[in-house]
Design a protein around this nucleic acid. Sequence first.
DNA 1: AACAGCTTCAACCGCTGTCTT
DNA 2: GAAGACAGCGGTTGAAGCTGT
Length: 274
Amino acid sequence: MGRAPCCEKMGLKKGPWTPEEDQILINYINTNGHNNWRALPKQAGLLRCGKSCRLRWINYLRPDIKRGNFTSEEEETIIKLHEMLGNRWSAIAARLPGRTDNEIKNVWHTHLKKRLPAQHNNNTKKKKNLEITKKSNKKSSKQRQEKEKQEEEVEHIKTEGSPMSPTTQCSSSGSINNKNGGSMNNSSGESINNEDDGNNNKDDDNLALDDDFWSEVLSSDNSNDEDIARKFEDIECSDLFQFPLFSSSPSSVACDGIDFWYDFYSKSLELPQL
DNA sequence: AACAGCTTCAACCGCTGTCTT
DNA sequence: GAAGACAGCGGTTGAAGCTGT
């Protein structure tokens, strides 16, 4: 599938926006809305590409943007949501009114990542072992392994009622892990200081959940998603919904991925250790 | 004061998913 | 069903500001 370049490179401005450009964009969107980002800069008289306009509007000019430092509550929310959703910044942003995915991503990389507790130490060890195993098998049977892994997940849910087991640690795929080489460990051993420490510990013991789990479970590979969804559907009546955490919205399994996982994980945290 | 190293964050890039033709 | 167009997402970059020496 061919794809035209985002914008004609010639003649379009790049770099920081000037107040004048901001004003033009705001005025235009206020009067005309933003039905077509690609056509917008031309119509508004801006020498920018549509993408740039969209980004500027969403991340900076939108009237409902909440500016200023993140509150500790917001930070805790981001940390928790990141545990659940991984690097799905837009999904996280959707749950933090007035905050943008870009902002959240920046805050995560500049502040929150460093605060991750030592709880990841254990996971890192396991992860390393798993990575070695995976590397050795990668070439021969990557697909099969993934399928098997998914089946293990489902099996786990069937038997233990939660997919958040440490045994489901997966390979590192996110930039965070890659960049820091398992640096989810905090050298100072500082732990997140909040009222949910109990829960975090529980995570550590039993519900350990890192990006990798979600990035694989929620992998962008459609076939995997479909497989997983199908598997959940297969077991939904038999086993899965016997668990209270599913009882409220069983239909969500097949509908909304992120909401489902959010719900899933939230509720799993409310449960006593299974 | 000057410099180097570090941090922050706005913006860009490239890819994917979805919709339309 | 294939191809094109577009929106949206996440990773990355680089300039500006900050801090330490």
